[in-house]
Simulated scan of single mutants.
Amino acid sequence: MYTFESRIRYSETDSEGKLTMASLINYFQDCSTFQSEDLGLGLDYLKERHMVWVLSSWQIVAERYPKLCEKVTIGTLPYEMKGFLGSRNFAMIDAGGEYIAKANSLWSLLDTETGKPTAVPEEMKEGYHLEEKLDMEYMPRKIAVPANTVQRETVAVKKHHLDTNYHVNNQQFVNIAMEFLPENFAVRQIRAEYKKQAFLDDLLFPFVAEEEKRFVVALRDQAGKPYVVVEFS
Results as ranks from 00 to 15, higher is better:
residue 69 C to M: 13
residue 123 E to N: 10
residue 181 L to C: 03
residue 127 G to S: 14
residue 198 A to N: 06
residue 202 D to N: 10
residue 177 A to P: 03
residue 25 I to A: 04
residue 126 E to C: 09
residue 223 A to T: 15
residue 201 D to Y: 08
residue 138 Y to E: 12
residue 51 M to G: 09
residue 175 N to H: 08
residue 144 A to H: 12
residue 53 W to H: 11
residue 186 A to W: 01
residue 132 E to W: 04
residue 43 L to D: 13
residue 11 S to N: 12
residue 119 A to L: 01
residue 208 V to W: 02
residue 72 V to G: 12
residue 224 G to A: 10
residue 132 E to Y: 04
residue 32 S to H: 12
residue 122 E to D: 09
residue 12 E to L: 05
residue 18 K to R: 15
residue 221 D to Q: 08
residue 44 D to K: 15
residue 203 L to Y: 11
residue 220 R to C: 13
residue 82 K to C: 10
residue 42 G to S: 08
residue 108 S to E: 01
residue 80 E to N: 07
residue 190 I to D: 07
residue 66 P to D: 06
residue 58 W to Q: 04
residue 96 G to V: 07
residue 55 L to F: 08
residue 225 K to N: 07
residue 69 C to W: 00
residue 27 Y to C: 01
residue 209 A to V: 00
residue 118 T to N: 01
residue 108 S to Y: 02
residue 159 K to A: 15
residue 25 I to N: 06
residue 107 W to N: 04
residue 17 G to N: 11
residue 226 P to K: 09
residue 15 S to L: 14
residue 153 E to W: 04
residue 162 L to R: 03
residue 221 D to E: 10
residue 175 N to P: 08
residue 144 A to S: 10
residue 23 S to A: 15
residue 1 M to W: 03
residue 74 I to M: 08
residue 35 Q to T: 00
residue 160 H to M: 11
residue 193 E to M: 07
residue 178 M to N: 06
residue 45 Y to R: 07
residue 71 K to P: 05
residue 60 I to E: 02
residue 56 S to Y: 00
residue 161 H to G: 03
residue 212 E to Q: 15
residue 110 L to M: 12
residue 26 N to F: 10
residue 117 P to E: 07
residue 217 V to W: 01
residue 39 L to I: 12
residue 67 K to D: 03
residue 21 M to F: 15
residue 166 Y to F: 13
residue 158 K to G: 12
residue 113 E to S: 02
residue 10 Y to G: 04
residue 70 E to R: 02
residue 113 E to C: 01
residue 182 P to Q: 09
residue 74 I to T: 05
residue 71 K to Q: 14
residue 107 W to D: 00
